[in-house]
Write a protein that binds this DNA or RNA. Structure first.
Lengths: 155, 155
DNA sequence: TATTGTTATACTCTATAACTATA
DNA sequence: TATAGTTATAGAGTATAACAATA
């Protein structure tokens, strides 16, 4: 009978309270949009977002150990341990017990891991270029600087 | 024996590859810092972050239904249904079946829910003011605008 | 038939605690 | 005793699918 839907109202009819004026809210929206796309990218090369991040850090820091990765990732060591085990099983990384201090295991990318990491990196750079299209010259640097300062507000 | 720790190296010794130059990476760092603090805030009034968000939207849109909330939240309706049930149990919201179309339940804050929402909002505004301290005049508006445009890159 | 909302179930990611191995 | 790393277990948050109620 009615020509147009009565409910649910479109987003434009919704009262967002002050939400849209909050940095917290906008940062969540943006990060969530980026992350959804990022997940599609890492999925396409058979990695989770966290795994891509781990492969990148291990690739750039050969011989890094788990304690150091934990401090970079805000993860518990038990959580990281599971992720590491999984990456080993899939032959993406390998670990060798250090001779100087046998408590540490030095982590390295395998050839396969290195290849996957490079594949994913190329796709992620593409994502960055898509974001650049929304920005004017110089605005990328401004955004990075502002985000860095926001992070520092919670140190 | 050694005077200084050998491992793990401090963050300053870590090679971050290109990570620090990515908007995706910086946005994740910033959002994650904000969110950790946000969780502490909502915890302190007995809410989860998602519950605070739901209470805010219901408070600003009395009579809103679950389909509409789902479209705003990027959640499955089954997930939202559980959250709504929980908020009802704790007497923070109430729902009334609509007379015009009995498939819908109109949602409202209870007095208690409204009070909690206001408490949390005051604390969240405090968080925004702490972020402002890292920014110069005008930079908040710039940041909000840039974040909005980044979100639009993935529409 | 289509839509709103619920429930059973399972999956993913995470942390806590107890553990082993090395120092 | 202290630190690196593993494992068992549990909790939070999520989605899928089957369902009931209403239109």
């Amino acid at each position: 009978m009615a020509a147009k839907k009565q409910t649910p109202p479109g987003k434009e009819l919704i009262n967002f309270a002050r939400l849209q004026d909050y940095i917290g809210y906008r940062a969540r929206q943006a990060q969530s949009a980026i992350f959804r796309d990022f997940t599609t990218i890492t999925d396409s090369v058979g990695l989770s977002p966290g795994e891509f991040s781990l492969l990148t850090l291990i690739g750039a820091n050969p011989g890094i150990n788990q304690v150091t990765l934990v401090s970079l990732h805000n993860l518990d060591k038990s959580t990281l341990s599971l992720a590491i085990r999984d990456l080993k099983r899939r032959n993406l990384i390998e670990s060798r017990r250090q001779t100087e201090d046998g408590r540490y295991f030095a982590l390295y990318l395998t050839k396969l891991g290195s290849q996957r990491q490079r594949q994913a990196t190329a796709l992620v750079e593409g994502q960055e270029r898509r974001m650049d299209k929304m920005l004017k010259p110089g605005e990328r640097e401004i955004l990075l600087d502002l985000l860095k300062r926001i992070s520092k507000a919670f140190d």
